[in-house]
Design a protein around this nucleic acid. Structure first.
Lengths: 256, 256
DNA sequence: CAGTGGTCTAGACCACGTG
DNA sequence: ACGTGGTCTAGACCACTGC
């Protein structure tokens, strides 16, 4: 079947909205699924239509839809569950909470965690943050600072920056009442699904302020983790600078 | 086609050597391919037989072989090249050198690297190393210490432990003459292909010895990276404790 | 039981690399 | 021109889930 020319076969089908022409069919389908996810047609935690339905909608075979879904599942945007359907990934659910947190107790025991908000303010974006978030320095950002404790011990000092235009109504108050991962809150309250993140890690010495906040000695070694998180269209939506105390925890990573 | 019962269909084919029964056909094929890789039937850098040949050998369809190869390619054990064939991954080749090294210059410029061996001795395995390498403490290990420099600046202090039985004939001399990644040397000289690694990362303060070796101040913050590397069959083959200077470099990681 | 994703097959054609 | 992997299809059957 000759089908690489842009939009052939069923010109008036759902597929005519496509953008990526001259690429494999399943990639085009993947793009369309991504658009639907981004647009919020299917919400996090919900099931998407079955493979046969999607195949009918896009006028392709089930196998082609399957390959598109396979890739999205491999990227953790979708979750397949045999016999039940394919679901939009979510940061709610015990299984994938802390999906982005690689800090792990040295003994395997899962710790009891708690969060304390130190600050929540709206300011003009500093130049470096603006650059990372694709904003102008005139734009407003939300700046959050918090301490995460594990087993009662302060362990992570986070400095978080979010685009103000998207995160309207995010206040210290609403945060104080909330239990659970921030990313889950972003999802349900602001419709922002974090899908991917990049981290840059260094070793640094604790300043006086940091040492006080984390209840450790001045100049203690800390793991500095700068994270930029992205939503669907690879749009940066969060900058997070974390300082980790790594005497009873370590950052775990797998290399392939 | 009823085929989950162990070894049906072609009892005297290559597949009768299988181990994993009651699993999908393509998983069994994957297992057989892994055995061949482990056994050294195809060497790193070489092409494996074409999909059709393998399909004939295992008495399954090309699609089933394809799915097995897909998974091995996703795990970076194999490398597909359209029009040419499927190749066994290797640590030679500029493209994948430093496949396991996540330390990256802050400005993107690729640095000039150099290695200096500080020590190479054979000793009885310390208890912690023995545990990580699945050895007994009576077994011998090779202990290597070296400095990696980037752009003339000492940046990584490595302390490496290898099972002595496998790495016979590894001496300071042979290392001094060698240029290139250690993993490539392991591959060509000792037939050991590193396929996967796990890292535990912490921030520490430089001791006097470490500071001297890295030409930094006492108690400077360092990134401590403990890596265990595995060959085929998930057999641990190396423990590497690295100390990274992270003022002009950072450890880069992607989260999905 | 019906509906979902998971496996397996067979065959067609395309795109790429090499001779 | 040929052989390789890459895409796409159509259809069969299996395994799991939930009614």
């Amino acid at each position: 079947m000759s089908n690489n020319p842009p939009t052939d076969r069923a010109p008036d089908s759902d597929r005519s909205a496509s953008s990526a022409a001259f690429s494999p069919l399943y990639q085009q389908i993947k793009g369309l699924l991504l658009q639907s996810l981004d647009r919020g047609e299917w919400k996090p935690g919900e099931a998407i239509p079955s493979e046969l339905e999607l195949a009918a909608r896009f006028q392709v075979s089930q196998g082609t839809v399957r390959k598109a879904i396979d890739e999205l599942a491999a990227e953790n945007l979708l979750l397949r569950r045999q016999g039940k359907g394919t679901f939009v990934a979510t940061h709610h659910e015990a299984k994938v909470r802390f999906r982005f947190l690689r800090l792990t107790p040295d003994d395997g025991k899962p710790p009891i965690s708690g969060s304390r908000i130190l600050e929540c303010r709206r300011v003009k974006a500093p130049a470096d943050i603006a650059a990372l978030l694709d904003l102008r320095t005139a734009d407003m950002v939300v700046n959050l600072r918090r301490i995460l404790s594990f087993d009662q011990t302060p362990t992570i000092l986070d400095d978080i920056w979010l685009p103000g235009a998207v995160f309207r109504g995010l206040t210290a108050d609403s945060l104080a009442r909330y239990r659970g991962p921030l990313y889950a809150l972003f999802e349900s309250e602001f419709g922002v699904s974090m899908v991917r993140a990049e981290e840059k890690i260094r070793a640094v010495s604790a300043t006086q302020d940091q040492a006080d906040a984390l209840e450790i000695a001045l100049a203690s070694p800390l793991l500095q983790v700068e994270r930029v998180s992205y939503t669907y269209g690879d749009r940066p939506m969060e900058v997070r600078r974390g300082l980790y105390v790594t005497d009873r925890f370590h950052y775990k990573n797998s290399l392939n």
